[in-house]
Design a binder for these strands. Sequence first.
DNA 1: ACTTTTTCTTAATCTAGATTATTTGTCTGC
DNA 2: GCAGACAAATAATCTAGATTAAGAAAAAGT
Lengths: 194, 194
Amino acid sequence: MKNNSILRNISKHINLDKAEEESFLSLLISKSLKKKKFLLQSGDVCTHSAFVTAGCLRAYTIDENGFEHILQFAPPDWWIADMYSLITQKPGNLFIEAMEESDVLLLSKDDQEKLYHDIPKFERFFRIITENSLVANRQRVIDSLSLNAKQRYEKFCSIYPAVFNAIPQKHIASYIGVTPEFLSKLKAGGGEQN
Amino acid sequence: MKNNSILRNISKHINLDKAEEESFLSLLISKSLKKKKFLLQSGDVCTHSAFVTAGCLRAYTIDENGFEHILQFAPPDWWIADMYSLITQKPGNLFIEAMEESDVLLLSKDDQEKLYHDIPKFERFFRIITENSLVANRQRVIDSLSLNAKQRYEKFCSIYPAVFNAIPQKHIASYIGVTPEFLSKLKAGGGEQN
DNA sequence: ACTTTTTCTTAATCTAGATTATTTGTCTGC
DNA sequence: GCAGACAAATAATCTAGATTAAGAAAAAGT
């Protein structure tokens, strides 16, 4: 059953005893999302962190010209939330949408805070996954500054082969910061040097 | 004295008693850096987090064509480290350099881990500042995807007015991802629309 | 099965920003 | 106070990637 996956995820960084596992699982709210349904929309206040157990979600903004820009993909075993809104409890700018039929486990901000207090190991767990997420985001900033479109595309494919095979390529274009037309050209053999 | 600033920084998120403060301060190593001196270089393993008490540092990479790309500025009251290298204890790709004569307080990774264990409040403290840093980095990714050069420049100036006034503008160019020449053109009134 | 919608490709044109080069202004150390 | 290095401005040219448009292919709904 799906609760195994979240316990396995957590056990990568902390060890829980049976009672703690039960106590943690009792806080989770299971939710299914049909394709194109939203977990969160721009203007909403984010009240829960989500752990993906099936399917795939994406977090994106829409700019002033109506273009989407994908900040994050969340395949199974990933956490996703609008961190800005979750922390500040102010309305955010992110849409979080199911790219296909998906299942998530939700943990409310309040319960998360209680967890930090009741089982301090969870503070460690979330510190560690936040650190890892920060490292990945910093690397993405560096890549956006120092790699060209082709290099960013190749890096994306090599780092996220599973995601790459499961989603429309226009979403990859949106993630790496090019138009779908240009990505198509790249794949056809554009940017031949290199 | 400079230790006040780090205690004030910490007290924004957790409360320490006198003994805890003393215990924490005893772990810190004070270090001064002359202009253009490195706290860390590409290829080094990052062993310490640094808290800036005076001056200003910057973290940057050098790409395959020899161009610098600034990931972070660290004026007084900011923490700086190569998070990737600090976490993995593998050689990193960042240079961390003093932009002017600067003073930092260093906390070793080992001591930081001990602190998590001995005074769990520190785990909370670093979780919170890591979360804040993640939010800022995610916003920077979004901005790089959805804003043009002029908008990124204006946003930088409004968010970091203190840094903006204290550093050569070629470093701002490097941070926002344009050439110094183009930034100069922008300031002179290029990109007139908008 | 077939109709609608979504995704991908190709190609021509256009532009934001890069590159290269030169000049001028500003520090900094001595 | 001056020499040499460093930073900024200006301008001409170039290019990676955007835009626009249209058709082909694939997916999905009924």
